[in-house]
Structure formats: C-alpha cells, structure tokens
Design a protein around this nucleic acid. Sequence first.
RNA 1: GGGAUUAUAGCUCAGUUGGUUUAGAGCACCUGCCUUACAAGCAGGGGGUCGUAGGUUCGAAUCCUACUAAUCCCA
Length: 875
Amino acid sequence: MSLSTKYNPSEIEDKWYQHWMEQKFFASKPDPNKEPYTIVIPPPNVTGVLHMGHMLNNTIQDVLIRRARMQGKEACWVPGTDHASIATEAKVVNLLKEKGISKKDITRDEFMKHAWEWKEKYGGIILEQLKKLGASCDWDRERFTMEEDMSAAVIETFVDLYKKGYIYRGIRMVNWDPEGKTALADDEVIFKEVNSKLYHIRYQIEGTEDYLTIATTRPETIMADAAICINPNDTRFDHLKGKRAIIPLINKSIPIVEDDYVDMEFGTGCLKVTPAHDINDYEIGLRHNLEAIDIINDNGTLNEKAQILVGEDRFVARKKIGKLLKEAGNLVKEEDYTSNVGHSERTNAVIEPKLSMQWWVKMEELVKPAYEEVMNDNIQLIPPKFKNTYRHWMENVRDWCISRQLWWGQRIPAYYLPNGEYIVAETAEEALTLAKEKTGDNNLKLEDLRQDEDVLDTWFSSWLWPMSVFDGFKDPDNEDFQYYYPTNDLVTGPDILFFWVARMIIAGFEFKGQKPFNNVYLTGIVRDAQGRKMSKSLGNSPDPLELIKNHGADGVRTGLLLSSAAGNDLLFETKLCEQGWNFGNKIWNAFRLVKGWEVVNAEPSVAAKKAQEWFEARFKQAVAEMDDHFSKFRISDALMTVYKLVWDDFCSWYLEAVKPPYGDPIDRETYELTIGFFEDVLKLLHPFMPFLTEELWHQLGDRDEKDCVIVAQYPEVKAYDNEVLEKAKIAFELISQIRNTRSSKGLSPKEQLKLFIKTSDKSLYKEFASIINKLGNLESMEFTTDKVDNAISFVIKSDEFFIPMEGAIDVEKEKAEIQKELDYTKGFLNSVMKKLDNERFVQNAPEKVIEMERKKQADAEAKIKTLEDSLANLG
RNA sequence: GGGAUUAUAGCUCAGUUGGUUUAGAGCACCUGCCUUACAAGCAGGGGGUCGUAGGUUCGAAUCCUACUAAUCCCA
C-alpha cells in the first residue's frame, strides 16, 4: 500500500475547504420546514489578526454549527468585523504620517476616504485566517459595522433613545488620550506600574509663617489646585482647620477643607485637591463646592489658566516645575515611588483624567429587562457562575459614555443651531425642519447647522449586531430577521461580558422586545503555560497560522478543546496541538488498516460477530453520552468521549478483535460492518476534526461531490444493549489480566498461554471465548473445578483464574500480591459494614442505597473467600 | 477598601439534587516491547489523608462557618 504511515493535513485541508465553499454547504437561507440554528460571530476588530483567543472561540462556534448542520437544522453562522474606531483611526493616522500627511491638514471627508481605502486594503485579514481554521461561516452574509445599513441602524437607535430621554450631554471626568485626542472607555485603559517620584511640596499657611507639606506625583498640576484637604480625624492638623493655604509660584490662596477620603497614613496626610485633573479630587470638589480649574489642553500641554509654563507639555512641565519649586525653596524632598498609571490601549499615551462634554446613555431603566431575563434563566450564561458577576454589574450599572473624539465611526446626529441649542435627528434635513419649528425662524438654512464633531463608541454599533446583521432595523419584517432572530448561542470571552454581552441583551429588549440569543457560552482566556495572558509585548503568543501549518487545523482545534472546560482559562502549550495531531494520525492509521484488507465471501469469525454486537452497543452509548455533554455545553467532555471511543474502543478493542491474521483476507460482512462503524465514528468526529473526517469519508467509499460528511446525518440517540457492555467489561478485564500476567513475568506477547477458569457460571466466558482467546493470545481456555498447581492466579469478581507457568513461581511474591488485594477488599468490606451495622443508616437511607450496599457486601465477601482460597492453595 | 470565583494525582480538569467512589479521565511519569495500521505506536504499572481547622448528618470531595492562597471585577 502506498499510503503514508503519517497523516499529512496540509495536503488536504485547502482542498476540502474549497470544495465545501463550491458546494455552498455553509450557505443558509430560511427554510420553514427546518429548525433554525443561528450563531453570530463576535465581530473581531477589522484591524486585528488572529490570536489564540479567536482560535478557541471560533473553534467552539464551528463545532456547534457543524453539529447543528448535520442534525438537519438550518445552520447559519454570520461572520463579520467591527470598525474599531480608535484602533483603525490610529492605523490610518500613522499611515498618513508616513506619507507626510497630518490629520489636521485634511478635511473630515478626505480622511474618511483614506480610512475606507485602508479598510478595503488591509481590513478583514482575520476573516481569511478563520478559513484556515475551517470556520464554516456563511460568507455571503459577511457584515461590517460601518457599512451603510449597519450605520443607519446606529443612527436610528441613537435618535430613538434620545427621544425616549435616555441620551444626554454632560460634563464628566473621562479618560483622555492626549495623543489620540479622544476620550476612552474604562476598558480601553491599561494600568501599568510606572516608576515615578513623589514630590513633597510645602504650601505657606495664609497669614502665618508656618507651612504645610503635601505629597504628589503630579507637581505640574498645583496651579489647578482648588483646596488642601485633611482628614477631620487627624489631630496632627487641628491647627489647620478653617485656615487657607497659598499655592507656591502663583501665590494663590485656597481653602483647607476636611474630608474622610484622605488617607492619614499615606504621604504627609495633607492632600492637594485638583478637581479638574483627578477623579477622586473631582468628587471631593463636588462635596465641598470647589472650582474645577482645567489647566491642560487636549494635546497635553498647559494652557493659560496655568499662568506659568503655558504651552509646555505636561511631562516637560513636571520636570521644570520641580526645578522652580526647588529654587523657590518649596520643594521639601523627592522620593522614588511606583504607581499604577493608566495608558491608552491604542496609543500607549498616559491617560489624562479630564473634564469634558460627552454624550451619555442613562442606563438605570434600560438595564431592567436585561437583568431580569438573565436572572430567570430565560437567557442562560454558561457556566452559570457568571450570573453572579452579571448581577453585580447590572445592579451597579453606570451611565455609558458613547462619544469619541474621532472621525472614523458614525458621526453623532446632533446639529447645533447658531443660538447654541441643538437638535437630534437622523438627517440634517430633518434637523433643519425641526430647528425651524423649534425656533420659529424659517430663514434657517442647512449651512447654519453644525453637526457634532464626535463619533459614537464602537460598542454602540456592536450592541446591535445580532439584530443588525439580519437588517432588523432597516426592514424588521424581512424573512431573515423573522427566521433567524433570536439567535441560539453566543460564544465569547468573559472579559467582554459587560461591554458587549450585557449591552446586546439590553439592546435586544429595548429595540425588539426580544432576547438576542438563548445561551451565552463564555470561554476561558488562553494563557501561556505559566498562566500569563498572551500578549504581544511578552511575545508568548504562538502564531496561530504557524500552528495550523505544523499540526493541521484539526490538530490545533482538537488540542485547544481537549482541556478547555467552559469558563476555565486554558494554559496553552504546543504539546496540546501535538496531541491533537497524534489523534488524527491514529485515525489515519486505522483507516490504512481497514483500507488494506482484501475482502472475500466467507463466514465472519465468532470473535468478529461478538465484537460487532459489542461495538454497536458501545457506539450508541457514546452517542448518548456526547448528546448529554453537548446539551450542557461540555464541549471538551464530548470531545474526550469520542476520543476514547475511537482510540480505546474502536482501535484497541474492536479493530483488534476483527482483524484477520496478517495476509489473510476478511469476510465481506465484517468488512462492510466495519466500514459502517468507521463512517459513524467519522460523523461524531466531524464537528471537531472537519478536514480529516471529510478526507476519510471520501476515501472509505466511492462518493460523489455532494455526498460529504459535513452534511451527513448525525447519529441519533437510540437505546442500546447494556448487558453486552457489562459482560464485555469483564471479558476485557480478563484480557488485561492475562496481558498483565505475561508482562509481569517478562514473557513476550507472542508467547501463547493456557488459561483455566474456576467459576460457577461459565456462560460469559463461553460467549466471549473467541475474543478472549484472540486478544489474550491463549493456547487454550478450559474450565476447572480445582485449583491448578504451578500457576499464576488472579481473581475477578468471585471467579478464579489460573495460568500455568513453566519453571519456578515466586510463591512469596504471588502471596504478597494476593494479600494486598485481600487487604484492600477487607478494608472496603469494612467500610460497607460500618454503614450496614449502623441502625440509623438502615432506618434512614433510601431502599435503593441500602440494596446497593448489600450487593457491595455480597460481592466483597465472595471475593474475599476466593482470595483466601487462593492464598491457602499457595501454601 | 467592596464584591465574586476557585482550591481534587506532577499538569489540566471530571466528580450532576450528600449515598454505585477507602475518589475518575487525558497528558506527563515508570517498566517491557521496533508484535507487518500506527514507536507521534502497543501492552502493563505507580501516583491523591479531595487547601487548613471546625461543624451539620446514620453518611461529606459534595452542605455550613472560620482561616489561608490564587484569580477576576469594581473603586
């Protein structure tokens, strides 16, 4: 045979993906005769490249969708990307910079043209990468959050929420990125440990020659100080109460206030309060009615309100002011200090807390149905431990800042009138009409309206995703939306449970009165072997495409799923992919064996017939087990079930039992049944290992282009013969014991052995005699009523087995082994008897439990007797 | 500081409402085999007082309390 002993995935993967695409197997359209099964992809960032998290997440989605497809459901997996305003804008700005173009020198329209060009050229690489993984998305349905219809939905919902009073403008402290010149959401801020200095600065107490000392990491903000704050319980500062202090360098007088917020242990116990530049200070400011003095420009330089160092960058200013304070004699000391400083996820600039006018969504009311429907399990979170986390967030929900000071995104549909008022409307024309009504000024023209410069947060697009991908806003009655929505399962990471999942649920109920999905499967986070998050800066993330190249997509998928229970982080090692590949190779070689057989018309062997009966039952049992695992979203358990079914049951037991001696042909009946079993196994395996199974499906039989395992009918749960499984278990244990005996005596597996059985019930052994003979490699199998001399013996249940050994038997060693088992069984019996001797147990425990304990007792007693006999026989 | 989650074999995890369990799986490990499908394999084997200390119960890995440790979210 010319087939390689090694399975080579790269030869077949692209071929089959292309074939599936050509046959339109991924495509879905509404079919009223079929049950829909829908997944929308968590849209990856359009600038992104595939990382391990995507691999895990999309593998799970693909497993679910492929299984549903084979089960005859109308399976639809919608792919797409989001426009990632900050990330994309940063990329475009950088590209323009390389071309010598500055964003501020071009118009908004020109910039958007460049951005779209960038998107067309570089965006969406990640979707191409998903194809390598085998993702069976309906690619004809690919969506992008900035395309026209999707944007229209965003604008429509903004106006809708505004009209309902859920959207407002307000000044709030935001995370300001002075480089990107935009506000960032909390999750876009990364906190890093930074070495800095703690400056101890003394302020004169007004009207005295005394000083107080504060400690700060940001001396450049002293000009924005509105007060000095002390803890009211701090007796050290009683003399300061009611006094005022003077800011050095600018000689401004500020009050000294008292607030519990001040940590008496930290620094000097005196806190400078800078409401415009620190979130905690802002809140103290609100409590004490302090003025917020903003001395920093949008680009991070100091403005004229600072009075000194105007125009200097905040970090330059920090150094210079240190020097100035020193010269003025106000710098007491500098000490080294490490602090957690927020950085922009995109530009890496140090975040500046900044007061700024932003658009907000009022969340308190909106959240209510979304909260309820998860708490009552109408929407299920998997694993359920996330329900708690979800509840906690929903109960403490805060308003959502949805404006971003960027151009790439949907521009906020608010139009300012010359008098400073504004109108929210879907179009400028509509706004003009409304403006005329509002002002009574019929001379207003479009040119008089100025649209808000800001765009909406990307999440404000993503939260509509399950509805907008089916045009649920543009055309709510359309067939797709009616058929596919609500979707079935959502697969995503717990890190965006609030930013995305919760908001989708909110949007689903608010805009359509329906949940967006039934189940949310939260995957773990893929970490490296040391448990660290994978990150570019650590360089600990393997290249997914490289992994696929080396281990095959099937190998990587299997490797990822093998040890990733829902919600558990996955400590990734390349070894896992090797294990996945090994599994594929095992199946490949099973195929080589079967394919190599010569088939003749003959009677099946007794062993083969028994093996068939057993494997049929075992297969059905595995189908039932897998079905149960899938129903609970235990994907890795389902995989493990089929892994063992293939490796242990099909390869190690079944194929070994039916395999003819080398060179001999196989009878037709056994051959055909075996092919049938193989196909059944491939079906169970296909959602996990799509490529290998498709290849073997076509190699096993002569099939046309439409007859593919991807659309084969998935095995259904059926009743099975449990008795044959129970009997086989004992027969297999006997075979293991025979092999063990051979192995522990250092005999070759080729050495044939004689077996004597002492039992009161011969039927099981007769039934399985042929298999026991073959797999145990026996010369003979006989029944006996007496002990057999010069033999190794062992006990299964209450039956005793003897294998005569030529030459000396180490009696002491045999005795020791039997004694060990006897001790264990006695201990076990003892624990059973403790229960049965306890009156209260017999009274209180359920009948079934007591019965089980009595059975355990009887079995153990019989076994002990047999073991004791064995021991006695040995002398 | 507030809240949550987790703790079972060397590693990653099962163990479903307490009773088929003096605890299972995969990987890793050890021993023997290049046995004509597969050495990336085959056969066999060892390994855990279920984080610690109490409590409830006839019975606890499972329920309760405290402690310890780790992780996450919020401030």
